[in-house]
Design a protein around this nucleic acid. Sequence first.
DNA 1: CGGAAAGTTCGACTCTGATCGTACTGTTCG
DNA 2: CGAACAGTACGATCAGAGTCGAACTTTCCG
Lengths: 117, 117
Amino acid sequence: MTEVIEPAIETVTIDVVLSALADPVRLTLVRALVAAGDWTCGSDVLKEAGVTIGKSTVSHHIKVLRDAGLIRTRVDGIRRLVTLRYDDVEQRFPGLLSMLREHASARTAAAAPTSSA
Amino acid sequence: MTEVIEPAIETVTIDVVLSALADPVRLTLVRALVAAGDWTCGSDVLKEAGVTIGKSTVSHHIKVLRDAGLIRTRVDGIRRLVTLRYDDVEQRFPGLLSMLREHASARTAAAAPTSSA
DNA sequence: CGGAAAGTTCGACTCTGATCGTACTGTTCG
DNA sequence: CGAACAGTACGATCAGAGTCGAACTTTCCG
């Protein structure tokens, strides 16, 4: 098989999506995928983002995001690539991904110009 | 005092907002406030929604939502009323509240017409 | 004043969820 | 074939969040 099962976008509920995005690691991953916009290796993305967790934990988070209907997994030889289900998510939750893209992480990106005070 | 402190909307991060909305009780409350659109008693709203929890727990959830910048609390005599910070939230996270309004609860509203297939 | 009602605060309990380590599966390549 | 690598599956552990109950605060009214 070269594809991994994923839920139909109509069956995805906002409750599950919000729970999936409530975790800092998963939020970092989704944000990176929004920026990447193409098939990417989840482990590498997190590594580059400074998130150092075990590979079983990475697998767990990717599964949560996939079950939430946010990402898609493809088998590429020895590794697995992930990408956002951009059109699907945009169709069911318009503006959600734009929101994530525009609001850079509050934890990692401390260089945000919030110092207006 | 007749007002309760709340964070400036510019200081509100999407991380905190997502975490706040990830709880079913809080999501129910916010959805009810979106529907109400006016000052409402949080305890009553939850009671009507079929959520039966202790009053200290209600107080806790309201505090989380208030700290997340989503709701506002006003003292009205012996009780306290809450309302959505509609304009503020809409300004900082456009489309978020519309998203919550259009996607009825997956847990409580099982009568949603998802059977289009 | 004194009781009632609504909400907050605090401490304690519980339970979900994130994390890790190990074992296992599947793929590539020497 | 067999070693190495990427990822999954499973079980165990641990921290954090939701929940409750009791005590306290504040307000209203008899």
